[in-house]
Nucleic acid binder design. Sequence first.
DNA 1: CATGAATGAGGTTTCATTCAT
DNA 2: GATGAATGAAACCTCATTCAT
Lengths: 203, 203, 203, 203
Amino acid sequence: MSQRPSHKPFRPRKTPAQSRSEATVASIVEAAAQVLESEGFDGFNTNAVARRAGVSIGSLYQYFPGKDALTVALIRRESTRFYEDASIALSKRSGKAALEYLIGAAVRQQLQRPMLARLLDIAEGRPALRGEVTKTEMEELVETIVGRASPRHPRPDVASADLLAIVKGMVDAAGERGERDLDDLERRVRAAVFGYLSRSASE
Amino acid sequence: MSQRPSHKPFRPRKTPAQSRSEATVASIVEAAAQVLESEGFDGFNTNAVARRAGVSIGSLYQYFPGKDALTVALIRRESTRFYEDASIALSKRSGKAALEYLIGAAVRQQLQRPMLARLLDIAEGRPALRGEVTKTEMEELVETIVGRASPRHPRPDVASADLLAIVKGMVDAAGERGERDLDDLERRVRAAVFGYLSRSASE
Amino acid sequence: MSQRPSHKPFRPRKTPAQSRSEATVASIVEAAAQVLESEGFDGFNTNAVARRAGVSIGSLYQYFPGKDALTVALIRRESTRFYEDASIALSKRSGKAALEYLIGAAVRQQLQRPMLARLLDIAEGRPALRGEVTKTEMEELVETIVGRASPRHPRPDVASADLLAIVKGMVDAAGERGERDLDDLERRVRAAVFGYLSRSASE
Amino acid sequence: MSQRPSHKPFRPRKTPAQSRSEATVASIVEAAAQVLESEGFDGFNTNAVARRAGVSIGSLYQYFPGKDALTVALIRRESTRFYEDASIALSKRSGKAALEYLIGAAVRQQLQRPMLARLLDIAEGRPALRGEVTKTEMEELVETIVGRASPRHPRPDVASADLLAIVKGMVDAAGERGERDLDDLERRVRAAVFGYLSRSASE
DNA sequence: CATGAATGAGGTTTCATTCAT
DNA sequence: GATGAATGAAACCTCATTCAT
């Protein structure tokens, strides 16, 4: 986990204009995901990622200025994927349906690659990465949906933060336990989410 | 001439015979807590812990066979403290009161040293430590209390695992955001817990 | 975050792809030989070897997964050299001539770098290296030659093991004493070898 | 194996005048023997010896100024035992019988605790111990016996050194292979010894 | 651009030895 | 004397990063 002091930027070094490098960048990020999944933080090192990606360590540094940049890229990739799926919730008729879709998206995302999701949640919290990884978009999305599902809630911002935490907490734990029954888990998460909302709204 | 087999257990190396060493052990564990709190995993190394404890690196290894053993000891210390506080819940009259006490204990514990609690939750999940750190006692306690608070719940084991996850999720997130209002947080956690229970019990 | 399983094989880590690294590997092994020769086992450490080789410690570990692997590599280098020289014995006309050549080879090898040879004989016996260093080829060679020199010997396998032991014992001791007269030593070893053979054959 | 630079004397710190300390010293030396036998040089450390002896590390240092002194004491104990047994050879009628007794003593000694014997032969050669451990008495004894068994040998000093080397070489190798048949081994050693003598005497 | 050999700071761990109790 | 807690120099090893080819 450790990282030398060197304060490096986190942005990829070059915007992949050519599709060749685009593919290389993607393969490196996916390799990072795989290494993280299979080896955990211990074992997540740049050499391993490069090897798994089938590129030289030199090339990796061509595209990422350092290890943290790689982590950030991975977090962003996953966040974006999730966000894109979750955004569909906005098109739902009712607020309830939207929230249900959102829960479904979270459960799906987390249980598809449980280790990866959990590890990234952890990485996201690392002080060194703080500020690089913004959860704002996601929070806004949730807030919008909560506003629709529970319009009279006194503190929609707090509620959406709590909801996110509840979902993450439950789904990470389920993933860690090796649960694979998506539907059952989804039902329980709904119970928590709607239970929380109904009780905290009326306060 | 070198290289030993490297059996690396997690048990402390020697049970301190003199009271002098008991103090040393305690100071090392507390130093570990402090380092983890102030530096995070990056920066959590045996040298730093020994320095902070004011003992030589050799002393640290006299009592802990390796870095992980230190982590385990710290986790156990915190778990024990929490468990002891939480056990008081059992003496409460009603199931509801017991559960409320439990929630209060969790919130207090977590917000007292938020980083530490969060980091330890993470460490607990490390595959390398799996099996060394048993959460069973805690789970049993919660299950007992849930059984009392919600006697007709179809799956008390699942419910207590979910509850633990909800509480941890919410409280860790709150800690990370720097929340300091215990009462407010406790109220919201109660909403989630009782909301979850009432909705999932009737299924 | 730390502590790997510590699989510590003895095989070199990578087969050098560029010729630059071939040179590095060779220089490390030769440096190991020199350190062992001049400092003995006390003083034989990876830092010293790297320093003597004129490479960084990192480079050493790039090619050898650990100290023992280095020792093994050195043993193999010397064994191979010896075996190659000794194999010439097979082309000799008579069994006697073959055996004499073999003795000469052993004396030469051992007296060229006496400390090194002696130290490697010792290292070879270390339980930690057992199995990594196979003497079988050498033993087979000697057995073949003994079979030719003393065809009616009742137990050629035992005899060749004894012969190897006699030669090593005498030559190591001579080396330790600082003897430098190859011819005299060779004559005495012959006396022991042929003396042993003639007396043990007729049993 | 290594030892810090500190140049220490090798003599035991005190001549055990009281039988209590005599017993302690003896138990420490025997513990050293056992540790060496069961763990090899890796694993031969002062703490382990003290533990096995059932004394504190402090006491060990009370009687031995350092690790090397302990090794030296052990070597001397074994040498003395061997020398005492071997001296009986002097009372034999014929030179041949004396030499045969000597061989028997060597085989017995070496095969009783094969690892120990081998390890001590190695330790004896350590430059750091050179001079502390004198083999002269033993060599003189052998020389005397060789003089009687082979009175016309041109170089009895060389011959006795060679003989010692032959015996050690054969018996160590046998011990390492796990041979347990004393009689067979003794026969073969005799073949080597007398074979050597007869061939080298006439030169 | 790509490669991978090389680097070395920094982390982990051991063990001979000392010294307060 | 005996004890064993404490020490720290020194060994082992990793991995992020650079740079010559």
